[in-house]
Design a protein around this nucleic acid. Structure first.
Lengths: 284, 284
DNA sequence: GGAGCGCTGTATCGTATGTTACGTATTTTG
DNA sequence: CAAAATACGTAACATACGATACAGCGCTCC
């Protein structure tokens, strides 16, 4: 990405790079630079022809322009712009919330990142998608199995603990691989398998998911934004943000999605008037 | 641009368009859709080949995917994404996020409440308090035990899974009450017992906490804002908000506190230069 | 005022990219 | 269980895109 360096000066964005070198450019290239800055960075993502037309110069001038910025070719220049955009989008500039803690402590960054992760996660998650998954989980013609990886299995347990109360045939798959591998026999087309898998993805889970998929089991996958290979077999994929300023990844966003789903399933069953729910409420 | 309409529903972004139609898509196209959503919208700005590789499908599938979304060809699809990006960049305020769902947005209130809970929880939690607890957990002269209630035991497991890696003598107490009650024999003044207990508070846990307290064990309690009776015996109490618009209480705030603590303990051990940490990092 | 140099656009080329046709595998339906 | 329909990938294709060679123009400096 921003490998383009200039002497000892730190250049972190292409816009700065341009500002730095615009003085040394010939007239036409300067027009190109100004056009790019004017509607930064969108015009740079379009084709050379469009860029040149917008700037009122010829194509080769655009290419000479990007070459002068230090890029080998036009695609490389575009990739750089895209990376910049991606970074910009991931850390929402709109940090309107949480006042920085007085002590400038170690807590705030962690919380900030976690809150951002949740907002980002839900931003990519439509109500409809969640409703679909909830409907599938509330559809009581089949069984529900839940399983997770090394760090995420507690999430599977958490979800199972709730779902098992409001409906029958909910099973958390625990213990040794050999234990739950044998449960495949019980699984069929009408069943749902909820899998939690984030980096580093576990081979055993992938294998298990594949076998289940072959048996026609519908897979709901909770994973991180890089998508576990299980996504290949999954009917529904929930991609949560996991990056936090810590040695560990955060599963908090996935946890919240899980809670949201639990709530949605409960509501759907209530709407269906399942008598089990009414009985349950007596116990609360 | 946003000319893509669907019946009477207003679709203003491609992400919404996808969410709307992802249900009607065949498996491979759904994978394409999910990869795009996972890193929205950057992957869509790259070439068909890169997109298809990232999604693990073939190029034609990508093209069929964009065709299903209503675009004549791939460049038109990309232009649409770019326009969307441009609009988003120009008015950061107008973050076109989760559209309120037709069925009376069921997601947003849940997320909002959860985020509020976290802010509230941390507002009453000083950095010093967390640092103290982390220091206690990082003090390796004693053992660490973790246990939780019916719904919160997964949180204990989650925390144990992490702590057990960075230091020895971390035990999650599972199974029947009789099982862990006997472990009391192993506990002494230098040991720490982390308990998760929210409404409805479990008698068995309260009894257990009391016995441990009598043996001089230091108790760290995760509970809700109404405080479990265990608070009476606890050295450190973390009170998290749990109220959400759902039939269930939310443990998400406590989960985030747990993650924060895990991070803090890890950092403290790193600072101490524990060789175990260095060994661990080789494995990551 | 003439010669040299640098800047810019036109025209051409090679290639990477999007596109399409077709055959196979998989699922669905009668 | 058979047959049709659908989904998916392989491979060939055409085009549009970026890259380059070259010529014209203006500017500067002898």
């Amino acid at each position: 990405m921003g490998q383009a360096r200039d002497g000892e000066k730190m250049i972190s964005s292409i816009a700065e790079l341009i500002a730095d070198r615009i003085g040394t450019m010939p007239a036409s290239e300067r027009r190109a630079a100004q056009t790019l800055i004017a509607s930064y960075p969108m015009i740079g993502l379009k084709t050379v022809a469009e860029f040149s037309a917008a700037a009122g110069v010829s194509s080769p001038t655009i290419l000479r322009f990007v070459a002068r910025l230090g890029f080998q070719n036009y695609p490389e220049f575009q990739s750089s712009l895209q990376d910049e955009l991606a970074a910009q989008l991931q850390s929402p500039a709109t940090r309107t919330l949480n006042p920085p803690s007085p002590g400038g402590g170690t807590v705030s960054p962690m919380l900030e990142a976690t809150l951002d992760n949740m907002r980002e996660t839900f931003r990519h998650l439509s109500d409809k998608q969640l409703a679909d998954i909830a409907a599938r989980l509330a559809d009581r013609r089949g069984k529900t199995f839940l399983i997770g990886g090394r760090f995420t299995d507690p999430l599977a347990r958490y979800m199972a603990a709730h779902l098992a109360i409001i409906q029958p045939d909910v099973f958390h798959l625990a213990g040794q691989e050999s234990m739950w591998r044998d449960r495949l026999i019980d699984m069929g087309k009408r069943d749902v398998l909820v899998i939690f898998d984030i980096r580093r993805y576990q081979d055993s889970l992938v294998r298990f998911a594949e076998k289940a998929h072959q048996r026609g089991v519908q897979i709901v996958l909770f994973t991180d934004q890089w998508l576990s290979p299980i996504a290949r077999f999954a009917r529904h994929v929930i991609a949560g943000r996991t990056a936090v300023p810590s040695a560990w990844d955060s599963s908090a966003a996935l946890f919240v999605v899980a809670e949201t789903l639990i709530g949605a399933v409960t509501r759907q069953l209530e709407a269906k008037g399942a008598k089990r729910i009414r009985e349950m409420e007596n116990l609360r």
